[in-house]
Each structure stands twice: as C-alpha cells, then as structure tokens.
C-alpha cells in the first residue's frame, strides 16, 4: 500500500485530504508543519508528500532541501507566476504544484498519476 504524508497547518485540510486518500486505498500520515514533517520522516518513509507551501516555522524552501528521495507535491494557497511555478518545479524531488482550493477529483487524479509513474 502506497503511503502519503499530508503536511498542512490547517487541521481541516489535513483531515479532509486524509479521509479522501484513505478511501482511495492509500495509507495516509499527517504532519502539522515542515518541522513536524522532517521529524516524522525519521521514522516514516512515504512515497509522496503533499505539502502546503505556506506554513509557520521553517520556510518550505528550506524544508524541501532536507528531504531526499521522496516525491513532493506542493499544495499552494499562495499565487505564484507561471515562471515561478516552473522554477519551483525544477527542484529535484518536486513533482507537482496543486493550487488551493483544489477539486477533489483532480487531486485524486494527480496523486494517482504521480504514484503510478
């Protein structure tokens, strides 16, 4: 069973994404911040991390630098330009950029695609 870590400071988002993905057969763990994510990665080895781009604590750009060999998809309420999005996607393990608010079906489709590749 593929494992996904949902990293978001908003409890509603963590809970709803967890429920949605568990219904689709994924094992889901959650973290409340980038720092919590890094702490949990010492014992968890997810196949994909869905990470909010704007959270309290260590900036996301610093957190992703410390994560090796795990695919990361940004969940972003922050609006970026197309050029910035492309720049962010150039980072080695960043595989997708999902703009909030997202459509549930679209989220599932994109997660399925990432984990199939």
């Amino acid at each position: 069973m593929k494992k996904i870590m949902v990293v978001d400071d908003e409890p509603d988002i963590r809970a709803s994404v967890k429920t949605i993905l568990e219904k689709k057969g994924y094992k889901v763990v959650t973290a409340i911040s980038g720092d919590d994510c890094l702490k949990q990665l010492k014992k968890e080895k997810p196949d994909l991390i869905l990470m909010d781009i704007m959270m309290p604590g260590t900036p996301t750009r610093e957190v992703v630098k410390k994560i090796k060999d795990i695919k990361i998809s940004f969940l972003s309420v922050v609006r970026t330009s197309e050029a910035e999005k492309e720049e962010l996607m150039k980072q080695s393990n960043i595989v997708d950029f999902i703009q909030k608010p997202f459509d549930i079906d679209e989220l599932i489709k994109r997660v399925n695609k990432i984990l199939k590749d």
Partner: peptide, 11 residues
C-alpha cells in the same frame, strides 16, 4: 501576504 510580487504584477 498571499501572492508573490511576480504573480501580483502578472495579474
């Protein structure tokens, strides 16, 4: 505080 400078200028 919610859009980057670049994206705001783009919009």
């Amino acid at each position: 505080l919610n859009k980057t400078y670049e994206s705001l200028k783009e919009i």
